[in-house]
Structures are given as structure tokens and as C-alpha cells.
């Protein structure tokens, strides 16, 4: 369910809700202000963009993985390890 685009003083904003059996399972913001230089500075780190659970990480074109502490023992099986080897 995707809401209308709302105009705010920072620019257009849109909010998307994912519902499962009447329960909201995810909230995301597909559109947020990033139009001018000032906004670009504010959004140096943006909001996370939720991924559909069927999407495999390998197809998401990511540079690095953030997760709960990976030990050196667990690293070999991690997504980050796959990225590091892919170069």
C-alpha cells in the first residue's frame, strides 16, 4: 500500500506500508527530499530501503554488508566474504 506523495518544506515525501493479514509488517519511504545541495548534505546517510524477502542479496548490487558481529570463524560463510572475493 503506497500513500500519496505529500509536499513538505523539505520536498516531496511518500510512505509505503506492507500489510500481511491486516498487520503492518514493513514501513518504507520510497520518496524523500534530495533535491538541492542542502538536502543532499542532510541525506548523506538516508533511510534504509526495505527489500522484498524473495530478493537474493547477490542481485542487489551492494558494496558491503552490515550485520551482527561476524567472527573470523563465521566470516568464510558470510555475504561480506563473497563480496570481498568478487572484488
Amino acid at each position: 500500500m503506497t500513500g500519496d506523495v505529500a509536499q513538505t518544506q523539505w520536498g516531496p515525501v511518500q510512505v509505503q506500508l506492507t500489510l500481511q493479514s491486516g498487520k503492518i509488517t514493513a514501513v518504507s519511504v520510497p520518496q524523500y527530499p534530495n533535491g538541492n545541495r542542502r538536502d543532499a548534505e542532510i541525506n548523506e546517510y538516508a533511510l534504509p530501503i526495505l527489500i522484498n524477502e524473495t530478493v537474493q542479496a547477490q542481485s542487489s548490487q551492494i558494496d558491503m554488508v552490515s550485520g551482527a558481529t561476524v567472527t573470523s570463524d563465521g566470516y568464510i560463510r558470510s555475504l561480506q566474504s563473497a563480496l570481498d572475493q568478487a572484488g
Binding site: E44, A46, I51, E53, S60, I62, D63, V65, S66, L79
Partner: peptide, 22 residues
């Protein structure tokens, strides 16, 4: 930089991606 956030329930998958410049 495009950073994937690991799915805590399935560490070979991602729950989200976030772009970070600085």
C-alpha cells in the same frame, strides 16, 4: 556506497539496502 543490511533470520539474505555517502 550501497550497504546491505543482513537479515537476522536468514544471514545469506538482506532485509534492506541503504545508500551512504558520508
Amino acid at each position: 556506497w550501497r550497504i546491505g543490511i543482513e537479515d537476522p533470520h536468514a544471514p545469506d539474505k538482506l532485509v534492506a539496502v541503504v545508500p551512504i555517502r558520508n
